[in-house]
Amino acid sequence: MIFADPKARLDAGAGIVPLSRPGVVRPRPATERIKRLVRFENVGTRYSGGREVLREVSFRLEPGSFCFLTGPSGAGKTSVLRLIFAAQKPTSGRVVIFDRDTATASRETLMRLRRRIGVVFQDFRLLDHLTAFDNVALPLRIAGGRDSEIRTHVNELLQWVGLGPLVSSFPAAFSRGERQRLAVARSVVSRPSLLVADEPTESVDHSMEFRLMRLFEALNELGTTVIVATRKESLAAQYGHARLAIRGGRIGDSE
């Protein structure tokens, strides 16, 4: 079903229909019980030049939780997120995702884990030679989804984030806010078990910020664990979810 007026449906409390449909994303076996969805144990990282980015970072995320990772620019938020989707390995300590230590997991295992993680990159990382549709469809194609299902899900999601009329346009022609929405759509289209969002509302207006946050909350209600990194303390305060504050590469106050 296509949302003719996404805002009206959202305000009326409509669910994320496209994302809740079975089919493209295989339902996880009921017997699977993830004990440690995300667990950092005394994690430290350094740049190749030797500068320390994270120091003795320890925390864990329970399955189904929603968490903000807050802190100023350069505090280490992006590094934490990169460790979560195994774009880098810790120089000390242990990062465990879906009960797997990312430092010792095989290449194939990491690929499989990443398919369960949706990522909103701070710099979006859209493929400019692909249309909006094809960018959003990528995770489903990687997962081996059928064309008909991909078409339905992607079109509905693009409508949801307000990019319906731009489905065949290329991201290079998009505004920063539109690119951000496109990046968010790509990250959630496969209804991941874990959503990692790096400043997902930085370039959008308040109305779209609300819509995107509602999208994340709806996903969370459907079982997705969400971690949102943001510089905006106000955003974290507004939604009242758990908060991890990071400063100078160390986890500070948490609520």
């Binding site: 989707f85 774009a87 290449r107 194939e108 690929m111 499989r112 990443r114 398919r115 369960r116 993680i117 990522v119 990159f121 990382r125 493929l127 990528l138 995770p139 990687i142 997962a143 790509r186």
Partner: peptide
């Protein structure tokens, strides 16, 4: 190269 890194981070296998 950048696109390939992105694909890998969203779960694309080497075979894909």
């Amino acid at each position: 190269w950048e696109s390939i890194a992105t694909l890998q981070w969203i779960g694309a296998s080497d075979g894909f």
